[in-house]
Write a protein that binds this DNA or RNA. Structure first.
Lengths: 236, 236
DNA sequence: GCTTGGCGTCACAATAATGTTACAGCATGC
DNA sequence: GCATGCTGTAACATTATTGTGACGCCAAGC
C-alpha cells in the first residue's frame, strides 16, 4: 500500500488539486514545480511512480525522462507523461523515451487513477504488504500485534498514531517523508501548520530509540522531513 | 486471520483475475491448474477453503472432492464448487459429494466473496485448533463444554456471545482485533456503529478477570481494539 | 562567530475512546 | 403465559491519547 508518487508540474492548480485527489486515494504525494527540482526529487526520494508534465520550465519532461532512465537507481521507476492537449508527436516521443504511459490534459482524475493503478500493477512489487511483518536486522515490527521488538526485546507500547507513523515509514526504509505527507497519511489532515508530526516522532523515538537524542532509526532530514533508516551507518 | 484459499481451475484467466481479487480482500491464495496438482496441494497446505472447478483436466472436481472427504486430514476443509453454467445435476451431485456450496460461472466476484465469507463463518474459519482446548499457563478454554477455567477454578459461566468472543481472541493470542472484525466474526454484522463489542468485552472481563479494571487477559489496545494476552507481563 | 529558521521537548488542555451501569426487548424453557 | 437470563442500546463516567504553544537548542549559510 501507500505508493509514493512524484508529481512534476508547473501549474500550481494542477499540483494542488491532484495532490489532494491522489492522497485521498491512498497515495503519498511529493511534488515539484519545475524540471530541475523534479529530477532532484526523483533521485532523492525514489518514488514508486512519477507523473511528469511534458512542458516544464528549466528542464522539459522528455529530458528528465531520459536522465532518469540513464541512472540505474531511477531506471525502473514507472513514468506517466502528462501532455498538453493530444499532440501525437510528443506522445510517441515520450513513450520512446521510456515513459510507461501518457495521458492528455485536461484529463479526468478517474482515468488517471486507473492508469496509475494499471502501471503500478504492471511493474508490480512496489507494494510492501501492509500486514507483513517487517524486519531489518534486530528491528522488528509485527502488524498483527502492533508491537515493535528490538533484539527480541519488546519496546514500550506504541499508541495508535505512533505505531501507524512508524509502520508507514518502516515500510519504506530510506525514503524521506515530508511532514505534510505524514500528516496526510497518518492523520488524514490536509494542511500543515502544526508541530503535530514532530511531537509524535519525538514520542516514538523516546519509545524505540536507545538514545532518543541521537536516533538510529527515525532520523531527521533537515529542512525536509523524516526517514526511517534500516542499515546501520556507522559503528557504535 | 488471513484465511488460506486454494484455487483449482484450469483457466489461467480465472486464476489470475481471481487470485488478484482474493488477495486484495486479504486472502492468501494458492492455485493449481489441474486436478492432480489441486489434490496434491490441498493435502499439502491444508487450506481453510477450496475453490474447486468441476471441469478439470487430469482429475475432475467431483473426484477430488470425494478423495478429500476420504482423508481425515482434509475431511473438513470447506469446498465451494465452481460449475460451468448452471447444470443442476452437477450441483446436486457436488453437494452430495460433500461440497459446502457451489456457484455457477460466470459468477460475480462479489457474490463469490460473500459465499466464501459465509462458508468460512459457518465453519468457523476452520482452523484445526478451532475445537481443541486452549491453554496458556493456568488459563484454559474447553470448546467442548464451552467453559473457562483458571488455575483449575471454573470461571463464572460465559454466555454464547461472550464465549465466542473470548474463544476467537484466545485462538490468536497477541493479535489485535479491531471492533469491526469482532463484530463481523462473532456477531456477523457488517457495519460498526454500536458499542456492542465494548459491552461484551466488559462482561467477559467481569467473569474471567481477577481485577476487571486492570485486565490481565483481555486488554484494550487504545485507538485500535482489543487483544488477548497469553503471557504474564510483569510480576504482581 | 553570528544570524536565522528549523527542530526537540515539555506541560497541560482538549479530545476522543473506552468503561460502566441501567434498562427494555427478546428468546427460551417451563 | 410467565419467569428467567441474555443482549443491544443509550447515557453517563472515566481515561489515555493527542494537539498546542512556548521555550531553548542546533544546523546551515554568510
Amino acid at each position: 500500500m501507500d505508493p509514493h508518487v512524484l508529481l512534476v508540474d508547473d501549474e500550481p492548480g494542477i499540483i494542488k488539486g491532484l495532490s489532494h485527489s491522489l492522497q485521498r486515494e491512498g497515495y503519498i504525494v511529493s511534488s515539484a514545480g519545475d524540471g530541475v527540482e523534479g529530477l532532484r526529487m526523483a533521485r532523492e526520494i525514489s518514488p514508486d511512480l512519477i507523473l511528469l508534465d511534458l512542458m516544464l520550465p528549466g528542464l522539459d519532461g522528455l529530458s528528465i525522462c531520459r536522465k532518469l532512465r540513464e541512472s540505474e537507481k531511477t531506471d525502473s521507476i514507472p513514468i506517466i507523461m502528462l501532455t498538453a492537449k493530444g499532440d501525437d508527436v510528443d506522445k510517441i516521443v515520450g513513450l520512446e523515451m521510456g515513459a510507461d504511459d501518457y495521458i492528455a490534459k485536461p484529463f479526468n482524475t478517474r482515468e488517471l487513477l486507473a492508469r496509475m493503478k494499471a502501471v503500478l500493477r504492471r511493474t508490480g512489487e512496489h507494494r510492501p504488504d501492509e500486514d507483513r511483518p517487517i524486519r531489518y536486522g534486530e528491528f522488528r515490527i509485527d502488524p498483527d500485534s502492533r508491537t515493535v521488538t528490538i533484539s527480541g526485546q519488546p519496546t514500550q507500547e506504541l499508541s495508535a498514531k505512533e505505531f501507524d507513523l512508524l509502520h508507514l515509514m518502516a515500510r519504506h526504509p530510506g525514503r524521506v517523508f515530508e511532514r505534510e505527507q505524514l500528516l496526510d497519511s497518518v492523520w488524514g489532515m490536509e494542511h500543515y501548520d502544526t508541530r503535530t508530526v514532530d511531537v509524535c516522532v519525538g514520542r516514538v523515538r523516546k519509545k524505540i530509540e536507545r538514545d532518543p537524542t541521537n536516533p538510529r532509526y527515525l532520523v531527521t532530514r533537515w529542512g525536509v522531513g523524516y526517514s526511517f533508516v534500516a542499515e546501520r551507518k556507522d559503528a557504535p
